[in-house]
């Protein structure tokens, strides 16, 4: 990938970074009197917030980011890894909704690379020929599994696993070390969570191993064995390229997830001063998604009357 081709995109992103939420903005949002006040602050920062439909407004913000990328990045396909998980989420929604006689379009999220109507069409007719190669086999497998078992668990596992592996595969194609590092972390994070949950719920080893995705630098067999005890898991991770997770796994699930989210935001710091290449674009995407996630948390917290202290604990890393 020619880094110089990203000069225009990176400059546009730098200009947009002035609209990112700062620590002071987050303080104002957290201490805001209610949803209306939160919406006002976000509108001042250039967000389009409709209080009647906050979820949709926040989704539009994510679409705006992708729209910016499509208009400025030289080859958008190279950073598709960022939104590939949305396609698999939509596939899950399509299968579940179709089998439940519901309208799947209500559950689709965007931005995505596969047209949701194509997914609806494919799932409703049990004909996946028109779907792109990266999702076709998974869609068939997940659909058949759902039809055979009349339950969503195995089907979901198939889709989640394929989502992570496909995103990692796309990240590797992108030649961006940052994207590869993020996707690898997401894979190992998912495997650790799967191992801990399966062991806690008494699932068989075969079931757990089947649910693991392929993760570079991780021996899934050893991961499963070590996950029976958090100290062993920590010891095993210290021998892998993910040794930075060794302390985080000793705590609770939420603490572990927070650590991973913060670690990803930390990885994006290295792109702050780059003048070209895909990394500033990728960083901006994660930072914006983090902002949207934080905005969703704050809106929800205000609706449920949480105190500023409680909200502060839930709000994740700030870039600016």
């Amino acid at each position: 990938m020619n880094n110089q081709q990203y000069t225009y995109a990176v400059a546009r992103i730098r200009a947009n970074e002035t609209k990112l939420l700062t620590k002071a903005d987050y303080d104002s949002l957290i201490n805001a009197s209610g949803k209306q006040a939160v919406a006002s602050i976000l509108i001042d920062k250039g967000w389009d917030i409709d209080l009647k439909n906050i979820s949709s407004s926040l989704e539009n913000e994510a679409e705006k980011v992708w729209d910016l990328f499509t208009r400025s990045v030289p080859d958008i396909n190279l950073i598709d890894a960022l939104i590939i998980p949305n396609d698999f989420y939509n596939l899950k929604a399509a299968i579940k909704a179709t089998f439940s006689d519901l309208d799947p379009s209500k559950y689709y999220i965007s931005p995505c690379t596969v047209n949701p109507s194509l997914l609806t069409e494919a799932v409703s007719h049990n004909n996946f020929k028109e779907l792109p190669d990266f999702i076709k086999v998974t869609a068939e497998k997940a659909y058949d599994n759902y039809a055979e078992t009349s339950g969503g668990q195995d089907s979901e596992i198939i889709i989640d696993k394929a989502s992570l592996e496909t995103a990692l595969c796309f990240a590797e194609k992108s030649k961006s070390e940052l994207l590869k590092a993020i996707m690898s972390l997401k894979c190992v994070q998912a495997n650790i969570k799967t191992a801990l949950r399966c062991i806690f719920c008494g699932k068989s080893k075969a079931f757990t191993m089947d649910a693991f995705c392929i993760c570079p630098g991780i021996d899934n067999e050893r991961l499963y064995e070590s996950a029976k005890d958090k100290e062993s898991l920590s010891l095993y991770l210290s021998e892998t390229p993910y040794s930075y997770l060794k302390d985080a796994v000793k705590g609770g699930f939420t603490q572990f997830e927070n650590f991973c989210d913060d670690y990803i935001i930390g990885l994006t710091d290295s792109s702050k001063w780059l003048i070209d290449g895909p990394d500033p674009v990728i960083s901006y995407y994660y930072i914006k998604m983090n902002e949207i996630k934080n905005a969703r948390v704050i809106f929800s917290a205000k609706e449920n009357g949480l105190t500023p202290e409680n909200i502060r604990e839930k709000v994740r890393g700030v870039y600016v």
Binding site: V10, A15, S72
Partner: peptide
């Protein structure tokens, strides 16, 4: 040419610059 690309990126977001 390269600086022009970057400059165009910034101006497309904020023409006052």
């Amino acid at each position: 040419g390269t600086v022009g690309q970057a400059a165009a990126g910034v101006v497309s977001e904020d023409p006052s610059k």
